[in-house]
């Protein structure tokens, strides 16, 4: 069972932010980000206000800023693009630090960076303060179709199993002199991925049989319940 341990982004804690119901946190995140995206990018002080709100939430959650900062690297490719925008955008040009850049492009780059960064920080805060099972229960309360929540639950449950399996295959490839990144070794990589698909598919079949033998009727029991308490119809896994 994968339900006992948190995912890689979760930061264990007991702050009010951690304890807040997950469905409220998801709604708050979506509403907050929609507001941010809809805000005209010339309203500079408003963005400072958004950042202050976010930082206050992070401070209240007790998650160290360094912990979130390290995980903000997912944004890097996008930052590179945003930095490119002033050079490829059209419109009147301006001189900044000896470089000729497009003025509307500069403004657009600021908007992209500000909104994108706020989005990454807000999403990271949700992920760091909310257990995966709580997010699933929250999505279910928000009337996300049950089948989607179930698929997501299985994905989260077996994420570490399957990625660790891929990791072992890659270690095996490297120890035999294969570089999985190099196109020369793609045939070997593709056979590994093919094997990974067959193993994942067959694992799914075994999980399904295990679930049927425990009385699965197409509906999962409440995922927010701790997995190790004794209940009838508890789902099993491999």
């Amino acid at each position: 069972m994968g339900a006992g341990h948190g995912h890689r982004l979760h930061y264990h804690g007991h702050s009010p932010v951690h304890r807040a119901p997950a469905h409220l946190k998801i709604v708050a995140l979506v509403a907050f980000m929609l507001t941010v995206v809809a805000t005209p990018r010339e309203w500079y002080p408003v963005f400072a206000g958004y950042l202050a709100i976010l930082l206050a939430v992070v401070a209240a959650s007790g998650v160290p800023f360094g912990y979130l900062a390290k995980r903000m690297v997912v944004e890097v490719p996008f930052v590179l693009f945003a930095l490119l925008v002033p050079f490829i955008a059209h419109g009147p040009t301006a001189e900044v630090l000896g470089l000729t850049v497009s003025e509307p492009g500069l403004l657009a780059a600021w908007g992209l960076l500000a909104k994108g960064t706020l989005g990454v920080l807000a999403s990271l805060t949700l992920a760091a303060t909310t257990e995966p099972v709580a997010i699933l229960a929250g999505l279910r309360r928000l009337r996300m179709p049950d089948l989607v929540v179930q698929i997501m639950g299985f994905m989260i449950r077996y994420l570490d199993v399957v990625t660790a399996e891929l990791g072992r295959m890659l270690v095996g490839m490297r120890s035999r002199g294969c570089d999985p990144r190099s196109p020369r070794h793609w045939p070997a990589l593709a056979r590994s991925l093919g094997a990974l698909f067959i193993r994942s598919y067959e694992r799914g079949e075994r999980v399904h049989l295990a679930m049927l033998s425990r009385g699965y009727t197409g509906v999962l029991p409440d995922l927010a319940q701790p997995a190790h308490t004794h209940q009838p119809h508890q789902q099993g896994g491999h």
Binding site: M152, G153, Y158, L196, R203, E205
Partner: peptide
Amino acid sequence: DRTAPMAGLVATFVFAGQMMNF
């Protein structure tokens, strides 16, 4: 009725496949 576990595992496989950069 196999949809939930099967699609879940295939989604996990796709996620693992997306980790491979080229």
